[in-house]
Design a protein around this nucleic acid. Structure first.
Lengths: 347, 347
DNA sequence: AAAGTTCTCCAAAGCGCTTTGGCTTGGCTG
DNA sequence: CAGCCAAGCCAAAGCGCTTTGGAGAACTTT
């Protein structure tokens, strides 16, 4: 069923039918009602491509998801997409996903732009200094960054969690429990978010008069086995840290596994605090959460990013917009006061 | 830069340029070379929508991802997508993802079909008896199921892991280690794959002359906290199982956490064997894997599914194709012989 | 040398929609 | 009652590509 068929069926011109369906005022309400009813009755659905060709708008947002060199796809991806997808569905948008090796990214962005496949894109996993920003600006493609880069913050649109503040608070929280030796299991520090977290951690230490020690600061891909591996290293140190700050629940889980294998108890022998993106497959519904955490839902972020990019794409030329979210500090079972005994015995 | 511009620039007709670029034989090699060079020089990219409108082919595959009632997105999703995305990129296809509540699925499929947005779709997470099969057949939309339903196996195209066989083998493996009381932490058993796994488990028990016991068979969403919760239940039982078979590494991790919290050691006090989809964020690179597992890469499955649906979509009317993959049994550190002592003491 | 063939290329007609500009009609004003 | 205006509709021209049906030039064939 195409527009022409429907119009013939109704004894109207395609023009009128199109206008009736798209809410233009040049058609009487009586006619509009008839048209809409007929369209529903025959379940008429306009060809998206014809529409796109005619209007130039695609009602599609692109997500270019980089695969890191070691072939990892970011585990946070699925929850982000779930949130974004929800918003897209609500607004009648489609979501186009390209999974590409990092090296191919530029080609893909150019392809999306010149093929006019999308109205805008969301930039995932911004590096400290990310060439994609300049590229997208030069391509004149509307975009929104999930996270930030080191570029001037007001030169483009983004949504980010206040990573620095979160890690300041988390570090101070541990320090205030009496911990003086606090390790950091961070994400890869070529990522902007990880640098901000480290900065927050350092500021937190300094604000409490604690020294920092490079030997207990790590930067890895945020997956479970890395948490395990790094925790084993920490446990083997002569001056064993009494607390650990991790950048992801996956790292924290790996750390807990290592702690338990060593016959220790997390929250008693070693405190763990983590940033928690509230990945749905790790959500605990217990009253007392397993982990003390700075918490911010990545799914909500996905939802909001989608809303924002839609607004940006439908209103080209509008000034950039930014949103900075504060994470919530949730106290769970993985933290406790520093052990006088252990600390002094070791020190 | 559009086709017409390029053709004027070359002093040729749009027809000839189009044919040169699309490899039709009616154009001399000299001309073709010139056209291709010019196209590259000006980085000409045909408008995808114009192309789609003219040809009727979209070069796009749709993925409709259901969000379960409790708002969970399947954690296996991202790795599957990573694999599929790789194949799509290679073949010049786009991937359109719709994340929808289960109730809305039919509407979305109809929408994709009548809007001619995709050349085919991949069906995720088939239920035991899934209405989507009939729907897609009636919509005349090419599709491939990742997994299977209870429908006659040759009536549609699918790719699946031999879940039953895997679980027979895993169960027998445990039985042959001397375990006589083996628990099952399965996925949700409205899913076809989970039913097949249960069938395999039961067959495995029977083949070794072991009794089954409903009290130690669970069916849950496959997330870490559920593994933890169920394992605690099992540990509290008077006749504690000496071995557990889990349907996902996430469940297994939760189970291990519970075991360790109880001061026991996995692989010694309790054996765990799991199905492992090789999720990239849980991959262990150690020589000895943490878990004994039946292993089958969901990422490879995504890649292959994409290849298959492309073939199906480009060749409508071809008979359905199927692929059944065997999982590999990998022995890791989480299994060991049954403890005589513990068993007899308890029994 | 006339008549076929084969090579190259082109004009024009779609694909299914939106949108510009214009044409009726009926109701008002002066 | 002529003249004007708004309301409601339509014809036709795009959007940028592919594809059908030729047409002209260069080569063979008889």
């Amino acid at each position: 069923m195409k527009l022409k068929d429907l119009s013939e069926l109704l004894g109207l011109s395609p023009t009128t039918v199109s206008r009736a369906l798209n809410g233009y005022p040049e058609v009487s309400e009586a006619t509009r009602r008839k048209v809409i009813e007929a369209a529903e009755a025959h379940s008429y659905q306009p060809s998206s491509h014809a529409k796109r060709l005619a209007t130039g708008r695609t009602h599609t947002i692109g997500h270019v998801v980089p695969i890191a060199s070691h072939e990892m796809i970011n585990p946070h991806f699925s929850d982000f997409i779930a949130g974004a997808g929800e918003a897209y569905a609500r607004e009648g948008y489609d979501m186009l996903i390209s999974v590409v090796p990092e090296a191919d990214q530029e080609r893909i962005y150019r392809n999306l732009a010149s093929g006019k496949k999308v109205d805008g894109v969301i930039v995932h996993g911004p590096k400290a200094n990310d060439p994609r920003i300049a590229l997208l600006k030069s391509l004149d493609m509307p975009f929104l960054v999930h996270g930030r880069t080191d570029d001037p913050a007001d030169s483009y649109s983004w949504l980010d969690v206040n990573n620095k503040r979160s890690f300041v608070r988390a570090t101070q929280f541990l320090a205030d429990l009496g911990h003086s030796r606090i390790a950091l299991l961070n994400g890869l520090e070529d990522m902007n978010f990880a640098r901000r977290r480290r900065a927050g951690y350092l500021e937190g230490l300094e604000s409490r008069g604690l020294a920092c020690d490079d030997r207990i600061m790590f930067s890895d891909e945020m997956i479970e086995p890395n948490g395990h591996r790094r925790m084993l290293q920490l446990l083997a140190m002569p001056e064993r840290p009494g607390a650990v700050l991790t950048s992801s629940v996956l790292l924290a889980m790996g750390a807990v596994r290592a702690i338990q294998e060593s016959g220790l108890k997390p929250g008693r022998d070693i405190s763990i605090i983590t940033h928690d993106d509230q990945l749905s497959f790790l959500q605990d519904v217990n009253a007392i959460p397993a982990f003390t955490a700075t918490r911010s839902s990545i799914r909500d972020a996905g939802r909001r990013c989608a809303e924002m990019i839609i607004a940006i794409a439908s209103n080209p030329g509008c000034p950039p917009v930014q949103e900075l979210w504060e994470a919530e500090l949730v106290v769970g079972a993985s933290t406790g006061p520093a052990l006088r005994l252990a600390n002094s015995a070791k020190a």
